Computed example of a mutant assay.
Amino acid sequence: MSGMGLSSAHRLATQLGGVLPRSLAALHRSQDWSPLSGRGVRQVAEVALDELVVTGMTLMSPPPRLARPVEDYAGVAAELVDLGVAGVHRAPEPLTVKNIRQVSAGVLSYERMSYDHDPQLVSALAVEGHDGPACAEVVLFRHDDAPRPWLVWVHGAGQGGMSDILVARVGRIHRELGFNVALPVQPGHGPRRDRWPAYPGTDPVANVAGMVRAVSEVRAVLGWIEADSTTIGVSGLSLGSAVAALVAGLDDRVRAVALYTPILGLNGMIARHLHRWGSAADIVGAAMASDIVSDLTSVIDPLALDPLPSPDRRLIVGAWHDQMAYRQSALALHERWGGQLYWHDGGHVGHLFSGAVQAQTEQFLRALTQAP
């Protein structure tokens, strides 16, 4: 094994060895943790799972590096700030279907639709090489009868595959609640993982362009489903929460929005986890947390827009011991948005297995199908 390989293996082993101590330290800082209770043991497991997942995602990616000094992004940042959120996120052209194929996987039957999409990025992002068409994909669960309520569910980082169907509990939402469900695949995820554009990463401009593209793709899907819908809700998990929040602030076709373990400031969040690389990430981490990159990120900031759905059609589900997106994100969003705030008492990943979160989601969706 090369020296670099040994170094990487040692770093991974060291960081994995610190998962439990970091988890216990995080819980010790909380006043609601009782280590000898059954609940306390579950919380340890959930926080440790968060630590394990984020450590693996961070260290299994290439070592962090910036293509150029952060000061070189100042011009792009200034242009984006001048345009503002509404100016950067342009309304997409109508979606033209490239292909729809039927998929059967055991008891599941759904459709996978592909379409070419050009987000027509503003010049500040286009000159950086991020503009142009890409083949987008969305998984569809549709009923055969008249118009139905639709839920558009936007996945988190590292997802975009079959697991999304289980994570989002699509089968129950489709069959029991009567919704049609669309699951857009974000750029750089799932079957798009090895295609251009890559997203997210440690290029702060590419991260902004990737999220702008994701927002544009979701809005194109909204236009495509609108004629067959009685109402439309949008929800997002983790990375997808920012996409869903922006869509809900830009597109008046959205009647309800739900965010699960939301993130704020994509570039800043990435910076907070780079410490697992040790001193090798110090320069990149400082750059990603800089004022210049904060200005870049301002045009994909969920706090920059008020959601268009009424407060009773807004739901935020936070995880009190979230070690990936952190509880502060949910608190800040609720302070800005109002609406409903539901706390899961465990971790970022653990909320996916919570029956109470599922019940809250179903209550929220059932209310969407009722007359205002």
Rank of each mutant, 00 (worst) to 15 (best):
Gly56Ile: 05
Gln102Ile: 01
Arg68Val: 00
Arg22Met: 04
Gly75Leu: 07
Ser23Thr: 15
Glu46Arg: 02
Ala77Tyr: 09
Asp82Val: 01
Tyr110Gly: 00
Gln120Trp: 11
Ile100Thr: 11
Arg101Asn: 08
His89Phe: 02
Ala45Thr: 06
Ala124Gln: 01
Arg112Val: 11
Tyr73Gly: 02
Arg42Asn: 03
Ser34Thr: 13
Val41Phe: 15
Ala91Glu: 14
Leu59Ile: 04
Pro94Leu: 13
Val88Pro: 01
Ala124Lys: 05
Val81Ser: 13
His89Lys: 05
Asp116Glu: 12
Glu71Cys: 02
Val103His: 01
Ala105Trp: 09
Gly106Glu: 04
Val76Gln: 07
Tyr110Leu: 01
Val54Asn: 06
Arg90Phe: 02
His89Trp: 00
Leu108Tyr: 14
Pro92Thr: 07
Arg22Trp: 08
Val85Ile: 13
Val103Arg: 03
Ala25Val: 11
Pro35Ser: 11
Glu46Trp: 03
Pro64His: 04
Leu83Gln: 15
Pro35Thr: 10
Ala105Gly: 00
Gly75Asn: 03
Arg29Met: 13
Asp32Trp: 12
Leu24Tyr: 15
Ser23Tyr: 06
Gly106His: 10
Ser23Gly: 15
Lys98Gly: 10
Ala25Arg: 14
Ser61Tyr: 01
Val44Arg: 06
Asp116Trp: 12
Leu52Ile: 08
Gln43Phe: 00
Thr58Ile: 12
Leu27Val: 05
His117Ala: 10
Gly40Trp: 04
Glu79Cys: 14
Thr58Ser: 06
Pro69Ala: 06
Pro92Asp: 05
Val127Ala: 12
Ser114Asp: 03
Val41Trp: 12
Val97Thr: 04
Arg42Pro: 02
Asp82Gln: 15
Leu59Trp: 06
Arg65Glu: 13
Glu71Lys: 06
Leu27Thr: 05
Glu79Tyr: 07
Ala77Glu: 12
Gly106Lys: 09
